[in-house]
Design a protein around this nucleic acid. Structure first.
Lengths: 357, 357
DNA sequence: GTCCTTGGGGTGAACGGTAACATGCTCGCG
DNA sequence: CGCGAGCATGTTACCGTTCACCCCAAGGAC
């Protein structure tokens, strides 16, 4: 057995392996074949060990593992991908922004993918038009990712999904539940509703709304929830002002709202804009929460340190990421292309900005 | 010529190609060989066209391109990587955080890599210990990335760099300029200095400092710049309070500083902590900038909407990303492992929080 | 006319794995 | 005692490219 690898009388270790690995000719990294001849087995046996195939004797496995260790062998992922057709890589299309939600979602997906043994390749898109998304998907499929998560959460993204390589599982994260792809999403409508109901329950006659950009499905959902809650309570529905998620736009909206004398409660579609609203109210000397109550959305790290600390709606992005990877991996495993629709419930976090008057 | 591919009398297009591509047996994606036989050339000629080799006649190239188009051929990146040894992928080790700086840096790298024709594979690390970084690098090198950018900007990261696959170019972004790897960094010392000098020039006797976590090189650099400026001006150096970048820690530091009666100027090592400081000062009824001037660091989008708008130091992360990719690509192209040290200068953005009294 | 170069293109062998099948051996069972 | 059923392992093909090398015709130098 082990004698094969010790023919030339080299000193041998306990497993019958030569102690000094032979240098590979070209300084190239050792391949499975090198490991095989070093361990005195066939390359296939090495492959079996690498893939944890059950029918390998313990002693053989130990020899192979020792050889791998000695030679410093690392599997070549390109070769593996070529032979098996599997790249163990998921693609993520992310919006090039430091917005809390998209970034957190991306890391949520990354960390879940890692736990499932997948690599993550990221393509950032600078804007939300169909062309960019199509191009991003093209890039990812050129890289032969096994599944794709699209975070850019706006209506147009779905158009681009038709250009997909058929057979590649896709999840639209924060996507349109009506679209004909799998979707993992936080229940934005419920979030908008609970924020609004919270304010109504505090005795406000109605709730004004600073919405996000209308292309964003999240913005639409939050607005829909707000409207629903108002209608259910029979409250006035004042047309919302739309911002662009930035504090600046929130500030501008806040300047308008501050001029409305009987404005007493505002639901802002994200925390950054809420910051701008707070600032506008402060400048107009409308106290929060005494004169005006404000609720945001996202629960960014800073929300608890706004002046005053912001009541807001928290989304669990780790769960979003985990669900996204779960859907992709399931579809990969079963081969089914059944459309999953996972909805994750948000949670209201009460702070000073909406305290009872 | 074209007759070869039209032997069976099928209708042919202008280039002599059959109009209907033959379905591949197993529903598999078309390979270079399919394109070759469809276009009536050898697989090598197709490869030459794909790689823009000069010595291919224009007419031949056109035929091949038409065949590629017709069959919907896409190169198989795994096969290409296996044969050529190049993956066209860069790896990024990023800290799992929505902090503005790291996230912006990551996108800066991503977008620069994309422009240079590289894919980007991201591995997030949840903490900054050596083990995590080593593991991240292990994952990336298992994926055979051609170069690695490490964003996690703390001292310990450098220890892990010794575990690298030799020969893989590495750039430590925001890394220690003293370390023996290539580094791309913003001049934090200059940033801290200009913030402090700005405040001193406004007539403040000295400048207090809320520092970042001491493991972070950026925090150390900013503190060093602050100290340097104070010493140069002969001002008192009050030991800094260290936070952890969060608004909460800034708030806590602010509560302490607000109790110091003659505190009149504070340099805070990032904008989030500055937000916390502002809140603490507000609660203690110390007006900004009338009683206390505050300067932050980063220029996050919201900084202009803090109460009051925050004077801060801006870093150009697009340039950081571009420089990082540049260094990696250069090393890949030339094969040299010369250690580059690129330093990018930050810029002071003056707003109300530090206005003259 | 012969030789050498150069453009255009073909042939076969890597590249480093996995998959399918073949082989020898041991064991339990009728 | 023969025989099928595993188990443990080896053999050979194949994945889709690129690389090194070869071939042929046309053209210019001598």
């Amino acid at each position: 057995m082990g004698a094969v690898s010790a023919l030339n009388g080299e000193p041998t270790g306990t497993l019958g392996l030569p102690r000094v690995p032979p240098a590979r000719p070209k300084g190239r990294r050792p391949s499975i074949a090198d490991v095989a001849s070093f361990a005195g087995v066939s390359h296939q046996t090495v492959s079996r060990v690498l893939n944890k195939h059950p029918s390998v004797r313990e002693i053989t496995r130990a020899r192979v593992l020792a050889a791998i260790e000695q030679l410093g062998y690392r599997p070549n992922s390109a070769a593996r991908a070529l032979a098996s057709g599997r790249t163990k890589t998921l693609g993520v299309v992310a919006l090039d922004t430091s917005l809390y939600g998209p970034v957190s979602t991306m890391f949520g997906i990354q960390s879940a993918a890692q736990r499932s043994g997948y690599f993550v390749s990221v393509v950032a898109v600078h804007s939300i038009d169909r062309l960019s998304v199509t191009e991003a998907i093209r890039r990812l499929s050129a890289q032969a990712v096994e599944g794709i998560a699209i975070i850019a959460p706006f209506g147009q993204a779905h158009d681009a999904l038709s250009d997909l390589p058929t057979g590649t599982p896709v999840v639209a994260v924060e996507g349109d539940p009506e679209a004909d792809v799998s979707v993992v999403t936080v229940d934005q409508v419920a979030g908008g509703k609970m924020a609004t109901e919270h304010l109504l329950a505090r005795g406000h006659e109605t709730v004004l709304h600073v919405a996000g950009p209308d292309e964003w499905l999240e913005a639409r959902g939050r607005t829909a929830g707000w409207r629903e809650a108002l209608l259910a309570a029979g409250a006035d529905v004042v047309p919302p002002l739309a911002g662009d998620w930035t504090a600046r736009s929130g500030y501008e909206a806040g300047q308008v709202l501050a001029k409305i004398p009987d404005a007493s409660a505002i639901f802002v579609a994200n925390d950054q804009m809420a910051l701008g609203v707070l600032r506008a109210l402060y400048e107009k000397e409308r106290r929060v929460p005494e004169d005006v109550a404000v609720v945001g959305f996202d629960d960014i790290d800073e929300a608890a340190y706004f002046i005053p600390p912001l009541t807001t709606v928290r989304q669990d992005f780790q769960r979003v990421g985990a669900a996204t990877v779960q859907v992709l991996v399931d579809q990969l495993r079963t081969g089914s292309r059944h459309q999953e629709h996972v909805v994750i419930e948000p949670e209201l976090v009460c702070r000073q900005s909406s305290e009872a008057r």
